[in-house]
Design a protein around this nucleic acid. Structure first.
Lengths: 133, 133
DNA sequence: TATTGTTATACTCTATAACTATA
DNA sequence: TATAGTTATAGAGTATAACAATA
């Protein structure tokens, strides 16, 4: 439930802060990390459905954060890549220009930050692995 | 971003599992913990707006998880309390009938569970405190 | 026929603004 | 006039189902 409440809070802050929404930021981060990828690959990485990936990519493209290039050999496929503007935005988010998070995290003890970092890694691992059939 | 992705995953699981959504579960949990409270108080606790609280309470009431009783001395106010059915549902969620979470958590080492528990407490504390002006 | 991507549709969660009833 | 609550409206995020184009 802490996860649910925190996710809600982050969305609210992104709203008022004018930043990209957490959903778009997470997708953009995946596109940066995994290099140019197809909408389907993005869907797999982010654990969203393909139609959702279509919309997310469309939004990112509108804002100039990604570009799409058609695959030369397969007419169905396109490749989505991050733009310099996209990288700049991600860097800004990460370097704590996100005032809300920065303020709150500054209140924590170093060992508490450490705990959060470890927890994030554990959660990412849980999400990354396929659930046992 | 781990928080955003995990929140999404939890919602998807609640969908397919037929459980109450994470939002409703979190609200119900607050109602249980803080005793009967008014919709406004719920809004404050959950950091949602009052109209959102109205809808959440309406949904919970439909499902028989809470009841509302009018305040005897102030005609504007009502008090929302958890029902036995509501308690049962919460207990079921907590006692790991939530198959997805249970399965994934069983894969973790004890010290990893410990880390997650501590992280949850830290996040709740961050959310509970007023942000510094 | 199978796959990639898109469009159509619908539902949840959430917000803001406007309204009602009570104090 | 101020407060508690609701209704109206809107937008983000997400899903499933149906479709198009390509392989």
């Amino acid at each position: 439930m802490a996860i649910v409440r925190m996710a809600r809070r982050l969305r609210q802050e992104a709203d008022t802060g004018g930043e990209a929404s957490p959903t778009l930021a997470a997708a953009l981060s995946t596109i940066e990390r995994h290099g140019p990828l197809t909408p389907s690959a993005l869907a797999d990485c982010e654990r969203i459905q393909r139609p959702t990936a279509t919309r997310v990519v469309a939004r990112l493209e509108e804002q100039g954060l990604v570009t799409r290039t058609p695959d030369p050999s397969d007419g169905r496929v396109s490749h989505v890549a991050i733009t310099p503007a996209g990288r700049t935005l991600l860097a800004r988010i990460r370097s704590r220009k996100n005032e809300y998070l920065a303020r709150r995290l500054r209140e924590l003890e170093p060992d508490e930050l450490e705990t959060l970092a470890r927890a994030a890694a554990i959660v990412e691992r849980l999400l990354g692995d396929r659930p046992p059939a």
